[in-house]
Amino acid sequence: MNDLPAPEPRINKSDDEWKRELSPAEFQVLRRAGTERPFTGEYWDTRTEGVYACRACGAELFTSREKFDAHCGWPAFFAPLAEGSVRYLRDESMGMVRIEVRCTACDSHLGHLFEGEGYATPTDQRFCINSLSLTLRPAADDDGASAH
């Protein structure tokens, strides 16, 4: 992936504003590029159908249709919901080169993208995303009412 210039985030808030809106753990992951421990997050093994939105700003990022069990301890997706919903940055922390994934709308850290791992998915990509970065909006229930 190339580091392409991304549009400026539509949502710009100060750290103090984010701290008022997010829990300390959410702030650490979303605004400080932290990582939750594997197999502890809310969505790593969830099979509920729906849309996964950015927990910081509500932008829709992934859907359950692209979610798969990568046995890695974090929610894994083989593609974002739409082109341009996430942006990619070169991450050279931790003594390796990785691709950081951020929300395009508010520039919050979501996780990392790994490629070429051999998963039987259409893209051979694994978007390894922190549960703390997401909010699951379940699909409409049986009576047709939205579960948002």
Results as ranks from 00 to 15, higher is better:
residue 55 R to K: 06
residue 43 Y to T: 01
residue 58 G to T: 10
residue 68 F to V: 12
residue 66 E to G: 13
residue 49 E to T: 07
residue 48 T to V: 08
residue 50 G to S: 10
residue 71 H to A: 06
residue 64 S to C: 05
residue 45 D to S: 15
residue 58 G to H: 10
residue 72 C to Q: 07
residue 56 A to V: 09
residue 47 R to F: 00
residue 73 G to W: 06
residue 51 V to H: 12
residue 58 G to Y: 05
residue 73 G to S: 13
residue 87 R to S: 08
residue 77 F to A: 02
residue 40 T to M: 05
residue 51 V to Q: 07
residue 39 F to N: 15
residue 42 E to M: 03
residue 46 T to R: 11
residue 87 R to C: 08
residue 87 R to F: 07
residue 45 D to L: 08
residue 60 E to P: 13
residue 70 A to Q: 05
residue 88 Y to R: 11
residue 47 R to H: 13
residue 51 V to E: 05
residue 57 C to G: 14
residue 85 S to T: 02
residue 61 L to G: 02
residue 73 G to M: 10
residue 55 R to H: 02
residue 65 R to V: 06
residue 43 Y to K: 04
residue 61 L to W: 00
residue 80 P to G: 13
residue 83 E to N: 14
residue 63 T to S: 15
residue 88 Y to S: 08
residue 61 L to H: 04
residue 66 E to I: 00
residue 53 A to M: 02
residue 50 G to K: 09
residue 56 A to K: 11
residue 69 D to Q: 05
residue 38 P to M: 07
residue 74 W to N: 11
residue 54 C to Y: 10
residue 84 G to V: 04
residue 40 T to P: 10
residue 65 R to E: 11
residue 73 G to L: 10
residue 77 F to T: 01
residue 40 T to W: 02
residue 54 C to P: 11
residue 80 P to W: 05
residue 84 G to C: 01
residue 59 A to E: 07
residue 38 P to T: 10
residue 44 W to M: 14
residue 54 C to S: 10
residue 82 A to L: 02
residue 53 A to Y: 02
residue 71 H to C: 04
residue 72 C to S: 14
residue 77 F to V: 03
residue 83 E to M: 07
residue 58 G to L: 07
residue 43 Y to G: 02
residue 74 W to H: 09
residue 41 G to F: 01
residue 66 E to Q: 13
residue 47 R to S: 12
residue 52 Y to W: 10
residue 59 A to S: 13
residue 51 V to C: 12
residue 40 T to I: 00
residue 88 Y to L: 12
residue 61 L to M: 00
residue 56 A to E: 03
residue 42 E to K: 00
residue 87 R to M: 04
residue 67 K to H: 10
residue 37 R to N: 12
residue 63 T to G: 14
residue 38 P to A: 14
residue 37 R to Q: 08
residue 47 R to M: 05
residue 89 L to E: 05
residue 88 Y to M: 11
residue 78 F to P: 13
residue 47 R to T: 12
residue 67 K to A: 13
residue 55 R to L: 01
residue 81 L to P: 09
residue 67 K to P: 13
residue 83 E to T: 12
residue 46 T to C: 14
residue 71 H to Y: 03
residue 62 F to A: 04
residue 49 E to R: 09
residue 38 P to L: 06
residue 69 D to G: 08
residue 88 Y to F: 15
residue 71 H to N: 07
residue 84 G to R: 03
residue 78 F to C: 15
residue 42 E to Q: 01
residue 81 L to D: 03
residue 37 R to L: 06
residue 80 P to Y: 08
residue 60 E to H: 12
residue 60 E to T: 07
residue 78 F to D: 14
residue 47 R to K: 15
residue 48 T to N: 04
residue 59 A to R: 08
residue 56 A to G: 15
residue 79 A to D: 09
residue 53 A to I: 04
residue 48 T to E: 03
residue 78 F to W: 15
residue 75 P to C: 07
residue 62 F to E: 01
residue 57 C to N: 11
residue 72 C to A: 09
residue 40 T to R: 05
residue 39 F to W: 15
residue 46 T to M: 05
residue 41 G to V: 09
residue 38 P to I: 09
residue 51 V to I: 15
residue 54 C to R: 13
residue 45 D to K: 14
residue 79 A to Q: 09
residue 52 Y to R: 12
residue 46 T to Y: 01
residue 80 P to T: 10
residue 66 E to F: 07
residue 56 A to H: 09
residue 51 V to D: 06
residue 82 A to F: 00
residue 49 E to A: 08
residue 53 A to N: 10
